[in-house]
């Protein structure tokens, strides 16, 4: 029998299209998003709870909430 892998919903940002405006970091209740060197948003997925607030707020719609292995 294959071992069970747990999946949780997490935020993923497309760093290529991210404009680093910081709207996502502003609304994140877990303080899981950081704007790296003014270039892109980076999600700390150990903190992210996949609430989706950042994805809804992102003006460029470059954040996606999808299943990630826990």
């Amino acid at each position: 029998m294959e071992p069970k892998t747990r999946t949780r919903r997490k935020a993923f940002a497309d760093t290529d299209l991210c404009v680093a405006c910081g709207c996502c970091a502003r609304v994140c209740p877990m303080n899981a998003i950081q704007i790296r060197n003014g270039i892109y948003a980076r999600v700390d997925r150990t903190r992210c709870v996949g609430c989706g607030k950042c994805a809804r707020e992102c003006p460029a719609s470059v954040i996606e909430i999808r299943e990630a292995q826990a």
Binding site: V19, A20, C21, G38, P59, A60, S61
Partner: peptide, 25 residues
């Protein structure tokens, strides 16, 4: 038309500062 802060996506100041950050990084 789009999201509240959609201007941030194409804001010339934002684009310029991001380019400076890229150059400095």
């Amino acid at each position: 038309l789009f999201k509240p802060r959609s201007w941030c996506v194409c804001c010339p100041m934002g684009t310029m500062t991001q380019l400076i950050c890229k150059a400095k990084s």
